[in-house]
Design a protein around this nucleic acid. Structure first.
Lengths: 169, 169
DNA sequence: GGATATTTCTAACAAACGTTAGGTAGGAGG
DNA sequence: CCTCCTACCTAACGTTTGTTAGAAATATCC
């Protein structure tokens, strides 16, 4: 609390004027991070032109996720790192937010499969878990000041859509 | 320290007979986790028959990583979650271990590319980052008691090698 | 300028923390 | 049986932590 306060140019006691407790700050940080990403991905998908291909849509969703994930990395990386260490009550609150976001992806990927774009033997939930895991890990190594997020998103979408091995194997 | 001691059926003061400090325990936990995974993946690759295909090798490497990652999840999940929160000295020590393991994957993927198995436009380092991110995220949702790790490894290898979208897009 | 509201500070508190050093218990060896 | 070694316990310590309540500072309104 003293370090958080310092970064706000306040003292620890002052934080309690704005927040009821440290746990409330935790709850807000964990939830806001995912909510921001959720909104960005939803917007990316809803902004897609009617004739967008499957990989275009995938690129949009991935791009939306990565841009916001990295823009709000103070929130999102906190979520990824400390979620399992916070009190159950806070985890439960955040699980609700996480589930809402997961449902967005599951719906999107199910749509792709229903449209015949996604391989029949690929389970949308498995793909979503792998995908989000891969995207979130960028928090640990990608530096937006050095790399281009859109390029990163395109590379990831391409590898996930088309695979890393040459076709014909 | 009191909680760690309790799980060892000891008292906190007793831990200092075995370890110099809490930071030493941290260092060991972070390092051992990755070293175990490193050894398993190296063994999986060296055990591959001479005529193994690219995807067979990839499956082996992924399987080695996932089996050990999940077997030693107390160590490996600690690494993934708290690495960024430990003192610089401990991070630096662990970075050396991490880099050694990364070099193994980079070498393996570079071999695949040199052999013409990996797409020319796929950067081995990017693939490795995405791959390890996706694999490590399984710590957060996969329950070895409920799911089969080998099946998981096969699904991940397949999706990463061949992509999730139907070919022809 | 005074009253009120908002925001921050301060000093303090109890609890938790990492660690220490001496003590204790049990086992091994002579 | 005594000595030594290993492993653990204990009580204590200084530090850090989250939080509180009253005071003070600042801003707003009339």
């Amino acid at each position: 609390m003293r370090k958080i306060a310092e970064s706000c140019e306040m003292k620890a006691g002052s934080l309690y004027y704005h927040f009821a407790s440290k746990d409330q700050i935790l709850t807000e940080v964990l939830n806001i991070g995912i909510q921001k990403v959720h909104a960005a991905v939803a917007r990316s998908l809803s902004d897609a032109p009617a004739g967008a291909t499957a990989i275009d849509k995938l690129k949009r969703a991935i791009s939306g996720h990565l841009h916001t994930l990295l823009e709000y990395s103070s929130f999102t990386s906190a979520n990824v790192r400390i979620f399992r260490q916070v009190p159950d009550e806070i985890q439960n609150s955040n699980l609700e937010v996480r589930r809402a976001y997961e449902a967005l992806w599951d719906g999107f990927l199910q749509e792709l499969q229903d449209a015949g774009e996604l391989r029949n033997d690929v389970d949308p939930r498995s793909l979503r878990l792998m995908l989000i895991g891969a995207l979130n890990a960028t928090l640990e190594w990608f530096d937006p000041a050095l790399g281009n997020i859109s390029d990163l998103a395109d590379r990831y979408a391409d590898m996930l859509a088309n695979g890393a091995l040459k076709k014909g194997d």
